[in-house]
């Protein structure tokens, strides 16, 4: 199977790489959105590894750059960012329909990519599934108890705080670090309503949150704390991986993530042409 490079979209402004396994026409297509500002290959080539592994399993894929990211340009036209993202995904789904006959789609997004995938998944009936990696998160009461209680009772931590204050602190080093979790907050009730709407129309959801967003999320129970009972719906699968970082820098962590996504996809979107692809 070889990959295809495409310039596509309503303004031929988008750039992406499609992977179309032979003999799999009409299967569920998987579209991978940019993670933050990283171009379509993904952090540490995560999106390349993911799409190729899914191609091997028989799923058509597209990893591409949204308007103004990576190698894609703007279309102009005064759209809001949400409108632009929906239009770009419409172009992306049309491309996979044309190249592989896909009629339903699974979106995969990390961080801001999860937020963008959420926006489209909530509105577009062609989206049948979504994988949200470190998507929306809210500091719940449970989060705060888990975060602050151990610190309050830890004498070593108090000693470090006092030492830092006496020595003027190390704010410079901390300030130099780049923010890595960049999902803009949305009203929680809206997000819950979106999730509820998604599962009620038959969508399958896979939420994987990492230890790399411990400023916002710190336990598997927090899915329920954040989003309520919709998280216990049979169409929703959640996973919290405390030891990993936000962008899966270690190749073993990445491999386990990819296996998890592949397994979830196989269970929820089994191939109609199983065994026919290369």
């Amino acid at each position: 199977m070889s990959e295809e490079a495409h310039r596509f979209g309503r303004g031929r402004h988008l750039v992406g790489i499609a992977g179309v396994p032979s003999g799999t026409r009409g299967e569920t297509g998987v579209i991978v959105l940019n993670a933050g500002l990283v171009h379509r290959i993904g952090p540490f080539r995560l999106h390349v590894e993911l799409t190729r592994q899914l191609n091997e399993a028989g799923y058509p894929t597209l990893r591409f750059d949204l308007s103004t990211l990576g190698d894609s340009t703007a279309t102009g036209g005064g759209q809001t960012r949400a409108q632009q993202v929906c239009a770009d995904l419409d172009d992306a789904m049309n491309l996979l329909t044309e190249r592989a006959g896909c009629e339903r789609f699974v979106l995969v997004g990390l961080c801001a990519g999860a937020q963008n995938a959420h926006i489209v998944a909530a509105r577009d009936p062609r989206v049948s599934g979504a994988v949200f990696l470190d998507g929306y998160a809210y500091r719940t009461l449970g989060y705060k108890l888990r975060h602050y209680l151990p610190r309050i009772v830890d004498p070593a931590r108090w000693a470090r705080v006092l030492r830092r204050r006496a020595g003027g602190g190390s704010g410079e080093a901390r300030a130099a670090a780049e923010p890595i979790f960049a999902v803009a907050p949305a009203p929680r009730e809206e997000v819950i309503a979106d999730f509820t709407g998604m599962v009620s129309r038959g969508m399958k959801l896979y939420l994987v949150y990492s230890g790399g967003i411990s400023t916002h999320f710190n336990h598997a129970r927090q899915f329920r704390e954040c989003f309520g009972k919709v998280m216990t719906h049979p169409s929703v699968t959640t996973r919290y991986v405390h030891e990993t970082d936000h962008t899966y820098i270690l190749t073993g962590d990445r491999a386990r993530l990819l296996d998890g996504i592949g397994g979830w996809l196989t269970r929820n979107f089994p191939l109609a042409t199983a065994g026919r692809h290369a």
Binding site: F44, R45, G211, S214, H242, E243, D245, L250, T251, G252
Partner: peptide
């Protein structure tokens, strides 16, 4: 800044910064 706890030597072996 990246991990909640140090990773094992095996976890980081045979890689350079994500690859």
């Amino acid at each position: 800044e990246r991990f909640n706890a140090p990773r094992s030597h095996a976890d980081v072996a045979a890689q350079w910064l994500g690859f």
